[in-house]
Design a protein around this nucleic acid. Structure first.
Lengths: 120, 120
DNA sequence: TAGATATATGAACACACGTTCATATATGTG
DNA sequence: CACATATATGAACGTGTGTTCATATATCTA
């Protein structure tokens, strides 16, 4: 990962106790990496459109493609990622796949983010 | 942007009224793009470590470099991005720059995200 | 069963991102 | 003023991301 920074930081110890305190209560690298991957799913305007649409109603893939004005393929690729990161789930009804948000955390995060950017 | 999808979607109108309803209450593309850029800032483990550390206490750049075990340069680049997206702010005290989170939205989003991934 | 339709997926390509290295700028200290 | 220190930033390089195109799979219908 990073070999020089440890030594580098040792030379520049500005507030050693603040650093130790900050290091103490930190989430594991594994958790933060997974969390970063989760936020990554929300770091794309098309996927955010999908999330916003699904926050109101269940929709099938072609509906979503129409809403976000993108190709079926692109939407399907996005949905796979969102599925893998447990942001959406779906039910199959015949040939149709109806998608919805997986839980309320995601919608809350989306709403808070929207509030944040609209307040600037 | 996308030229074929409009026509493509027209052929496959599965639930026209659901699509119209979804299209009606959608945030502007500009807003969603900005929101995506904001979430992008949280889509990196090192930046999440910075956010977590700053959610507890104000820290200067070298302190942060020590906490996240990364180089001063890398941390400074991250902080510039976080500043630009209004996620952190800082005060200058002599040669030192003390960073903190810009507002409570970001911490709430971080906490909710952490809850979400820890519940899986 | 043949054909149409809904969805999923692999490959490929252009572009964005994260780090490092070198160096610039600004502020303190002897 | 000369030098050390804290921070910022530009260039460059490898890697990841998002879309398209082609095509596979699954399900319905005539």
């Amino acid at each position: 990962m990073n070999t020089t920074s440890g030594a580098e930081a040792d030379v520049h110890r500005i507030h050693p106790d603040a650093v130790r305190a900050a290091q103490r209560d930190t989430s594991s690298h594994e958790t933060l990496t997974y969390l970063a991957d989760t936020f990554q799913m929300l770091a794309n305007p098309t996927r955010l459109q999908i999330v916003e649409a699904l926050s109101r109603r269940e929709l099938c893939v072609w509906d979503l493609a129409a809403v976000v004005e993108s190709s079926q393929s692109a939407v399907s690729h996005h949905l796979r990622q969102l599925r893998q990161m447990k942001i959406v789930r779906y039910r199959k009804e015949g040939r149709l796949a109806y998608y919805r948000l997986d839980d309320e955390h995601i919608e809350a995060i989306f709403r808070l983010g929207l509030e944040h950017v609209l307040e600037q």
